[in-house]
């Protein structure tokens, strides 16, 4: 089937996870099996069944436009690995707007 180690490497890059060459091999095999299963599901007769995006028989769950208390700045930053004043501090990333 279709999933190569190269595909897994690309997906790993998108997900920002580092995989060893052995893992790339192992996961491409596992993903293949999952896709094969999906292929099998595709054969099920689904005429007359509308596509669904959710397993709960619920629609239109709203909240009203009301303010709720936010966290204090201290609480919001409590678990931050790094901070400066009221900000989260992160390593420099390539800025798409500069």
């Amino acid at each position: 089937m279709g999933i190569s180690a190269k595909d897994v490497e690309y997906l790993a890059h998108l997900a920002r996870i580092q995989l060893s060459p052995e893992e790339l091999q192992r996961f491409s095999g596992q993903l293949d099996e999952i896709l094969a299963y999906v292929e099998k599901l595709k054969k099920a007769k689904t005429e007359g069944a509308p596509p669904t995006s959710h397993v709960l028989p619920l629609t239109n769950v709203f909240r009203e436009d009301k303010l709720q208390p936010s966290l204090s700045n201290e609480a919001a930053l409590a678990n931050a690995p790094s901070r400066e004043g009221p900000y989260f501090k992160v390593p420099q990333i390539i800025d798409p707007t500069s």
């Binding site: 400066e84 900000y87 992160v90 420099q92 990333i93």
Partner: peptide, 13 residues
């Protein structure tokens, strides 16, 4: 908020 000289960025959510 970028601090390019210092090599980090600040995040306001």
């Amino acid at each position: 908020v970028h601090r390019p000289e210092e090599g980090y960025s600040l995040v306001d959510l």
